[in-house]
Amino acid sequence: MNPRLQRWAERRLPALTRYRRPEGLPLELHRRRIYIVPTGFGAAFAVLLTVMLVGALNYANNAALLLTCLLGATSAASMLVAFRTLDGLRLASVRADHVVAGEAVQVQFEFETTRLRQALRLDLGPASTAFAIAAGRTSVGLPLQTAKRGWMPLPRVRVWSSWPLGMFRAWSWLHPQQAVLVWPRAEATGPTPPHHDADQQRHRLHQGDDLAALRDYRLGDPPRHIAWRASARHEHLLVKDFEQPEAQHEWRLDWYQLAGLDDEARIARLARWLDEADRRGEAYSLRLPQQQVPMGSGAQQYAQCMSLLATLP
């Protein structure tokens, strides 16, 4: 259906379109929220059954009439089976990984049931997947396209099935009250973070002090760093490693140092620096208008900083 028309209809005719406001989890499907309509094939089959009925009656052929009645009753029974495929299904939880704005996030829907259900389908926007679920819990993942940073409420998802004969389609809308946190997108290129004076100081102070570490020569090492005496005893050239103290240096990322940029540009730049720091294993701290993240490193630090950036107004 035309999405604009659907949106309008849902706003104006909530009862007709079975619109549901977001609800808390767990969500259990029951008879008041499962709807059934015949599919195109089901309608065509009904026409066929009518033709068969008229034919059997016309020829006064009771065996054919019996067969037609049997087929008709079977199709009707398949409607009940379609209903039972959804009835009692529980959406237990919804989880999503972190994602950067503009990319698709895999949303995991965890369903719970007490018996086997087959040929269930889940639609989330344009994405759709089919799954079977045995007694217990089953997780179903669907990609969700994100656009901008911040909390993105989950759109409603449709769970449906045309099991077992494809003649009836039972469906239900699920609108879990959940949101996905979308991290800001880092800018593509830009300057490196400014180094603090204290850092520079310490850097210079430490250089040349720590000669304990020796490592293999790498192309581009200055010749004055080569440990000639030690190299003489080895097959390769050895270099005195003065890099060690530099790895210890700390990045102090500060919102207020990025004066002259608008908010989104600041956020994009900070995101890029956070990415880079995390990739290089640096320790960093982050200062934002309202919050402050103390010095630290690792996945948790990164996630905390990104989440703060994501939720900035």
């Binding site: 086997l116 087959q118 040929a119 269930l120 389908r121 089919a130 799954f131 079977a132 099935s161 045309s162 099991w163 077992p164 004969l165 494809g166 003649m167």
Partner: peptide, 10 residues
């Protein structure tokens, strides 16, 4: 056959 046309089944 009609059953087998449905996706995701055992």
């Amino acid at each position: 056959t009609l059953r087998a046309l449905e996706p995701a089944q055992l």
